[in-house]
Design a protein around this nucleic acid. Structure first.
Lengths: 120, 120
DNA sequence: TTATAATATAAGCAAATAATTATATGTCAA
DNA sequence: TTGACATATAATTATTTGCTTATATTATAA
């Protein structure tokens, strides 16, 4: 049973290399729960903000994630319309849920939830 | 529907990093068709024999492949009993079949088929 | 405006990676 | 034994990677 179209090895390898970093793999697993903004990642990872940004940029350049600015925050989400998304999803599905990390943020009061623009 | 046990991010990331190299990813895809020996890989890849050996060693050290010497050849196969095999398999399943590469070897007469020990 | 918060980019550096060539090991057959 | 073949290991090197600090950008709020 084949559920998705084949992805060429040339295209798959760079994606797997990106996912082969613990930080980025965790990011993708977190994003599988829903969108996150950069400051949430900087809370979760014990790492400088530029480092977070650079990881996200790599994921974005590869088309794995999608970036959307809302006010002063930039929210990231999995780019489900990317040709390579099935590969990403199959990988993430094998990983434990990262929901607890987001719940912890919520308890901290560090979760950023976008409700609606305050004006305009 | 979850078909396999979760694999920790700490364990998954190094495996994905290994699969993130085009040569190794192709090797694993080839092995998904059946066992191969080193000389077959050196035929298929435009690369030195030590380079092939080093890639295989990394895959072996990570438990992705299994090594078995028979006579002067060393045959490699996917280590299906490894805890991380489900991850490897899900990835390989998304890739195009590499059977044609093995068929080409066969036409070349470079396919090594182990039938039985000639003596003992 | 000006200050501040969120994020991105640039520059620099140490560590990891993947290739090469040279050499060693192991098996078999004459 | 010896030679040939298959494979592994060692040493070297160029490139890539992931982090850091410093600085730039962008948006909001005072």
């Amino acid at each position: 049973m084949k559920t998705t179209a084949d992805i060429s090895i040339e295209k798959a390898a760079p994606i797997l290399k990106l996912l082969g970093d613990k930080t980025r793999l965790t990011m993708v697993a977190l994003l599988h729960e829903g969108e996150c903004c950069v400051c949430e990642f900087t809370e979760i990872f014990n790492m400088s903000q530029p480092s977070i940004s650079q990881h996200l940029r790599k994921l974005r350049d590869a088309g794995v994630v999608h970036e959307e600015r809302r006010g002063q925050w930039v929210f990231y989400s999995l780019n489900t319309s990317n040709e390579l998304y099935p590969l990403v999803e199959q990988v993430v599905k094998q990983l434990p849920s990262q929901k607890s990390k987001l719940d912890d943020l919520e308890k901290n009061g560090s979760r950023v939830v976008w409700c609606e623009p305050k004006r305009k």
